[in-house]
Write a protein that binds this DNA or RNA. Structure first.
Length: 156
DNA sequence: GCCAACGTTGGC
DNA sequence: GCCAACGTTGGC
């Protein structure tokens, strides 16, 4: 049974267009340094799908869909002291942080902005819309997933 | 650029 | 174990 997720990225750092332009349209999702988000990353399975969300963007929006093509494995950026994601407490023997690989599936014809999503009644309990929510990896309920896909279809 | 909300750190 | 201080996230 595949599950649904939402992944945040700042488009200035890495946008959905960057993903589409990546080799094999695939990238590793490195740099998650929050335990709750890490736990969700570790729960992801190959074949799960996720929304790609542009945070710190103008406007912030869900912009498309990606698929998990490799389940979680140690985030080796944490082992590299030259990386901005370095964490001396994480080692190859006992990794504290993990990442998955995701592949581009599609970009919506029209971005689904945060403010537009807030007006959809089916999404009122969505984690993304909770006040103060900062989770960069979060689960999406099936009915939320469907409602958002319907919005994307109707917006096109 | 501002600032509220949140998570982490570290003194006690 | 409490909590103040600090750093980060991310909408506005």
């Amino acid at each position: 049974m595949s599950q649904y997720w939402l992944l945040k990225s700042e488009p200035k750092t890495f946008s959905i267009d960057d993903l589409a332009a990546s080799p094999r349209q695939t990238t590793c999702w490195e740099g998650v340094r929050n335990y709750q988000a890490r736990n969700f990353l570790c729960a992801m399975k190959r074949g799960d799908q996720a929304f790609f969300y542009h945070s710190n963007a103008d406007p912030p929006a869900i912009v498309g869909v990606v698929e998990v093509v490799k389940a979680s494995y140690p985030d080796h950026y944490a082992f590299d002291s030259n990386s901005r994601y370095y964490d001396s407490k994480s080692t190859p023997e006992a990794s504290r942080w993990f990442m998955v690989d995701v592949k581009y599936v599609r970009k919506f014809t029209a971005d689904l902005t945060l403010s537009a999503l807030r007006s959809v009644s089916e999404l009122h309990e969505m984690e993304l819309l909770r006040k103060g929510s900062r989770l960069s990896v979060q689960p999406v309920r099936v009915h939320e997933w469907k409602a958002i896909l319907r919005l994307a279809r109707n917006a096109s």
